[in-house]
């Protein structure tokens, strides 16, 4: 195989942020993304928003998937988004949130820059399809 053939692969950061210790969903999605041919970087549990920002910037991911089941999304997601902004990394990162987010909070997250929110019971194919269609084109 030539080293000159452009080889693009969708890079995703699957992030667990805050004190929420439920990572089954994040593991399942990480595996599903891998099997879909994505490159998945898993953050591990209990990450601070700054760590997620650091990882997203350094790894230059196309997609940032934040998994939150603790209800702290209104506090944590804005911090991540602010951090990405400070590195000029917000506009070309697709941000999706997975977990339990009440209907009332969804609009707010969307207005901050979250592209989509996937609640419990979302078919895996739906999430993968969404990422495939919306992952930003990189120069």
């Amino acid at each position: 195989m030539s080293t000159d053939t452009a080889q693009r692969s969708i890079r995703c950061l699957v992030a667990k942020v805050g004190l929420d210790g439920h990572d089954r969903g994040a593991h399942v999605i990480a595996r599903a993304f891998r099997d879909a041919g994505f490159e998945v970087i898993y953050s591990g549990l209990h990450r601070a928003p700054e760590e997620i920002v650091q990882a997203a910037v350094q790894e230059d991911v196309d997609v940032l998937g934040i998994s939150i089941l603790s209800g702290a999304h209104n506090t944590l997601v804005p911090k991540v988004i602010e951090g990405l902004k400070s590195y000029d990394a917000l506009e070309d990162t697709l941000i999706i949130v997975g977990g339990i987010v009440p209907e009332d909070d969804r609009e707010k997250l969307r207005s901050l820059g979250v592209a989509e929110i996937f609640g419990p019971g979302t078919p895996m194919e739906e999430t993968i399809e969404f990422v495939r269609e919306n992952a930003p084109e990189r120069p």
Partner: peptide, 18 residues
């Protein structure tokens, strides 16, 4: 599939936010 789970970053606990 070409997919991968890149897990080395999980161990980078001593350099948080640096």
């Amino acid at each position: 599939t070409g997919g991968a789970v890149l897990g080395d970053r999980i161990r980078m606990a001593s350099n948080v936010g640096d």
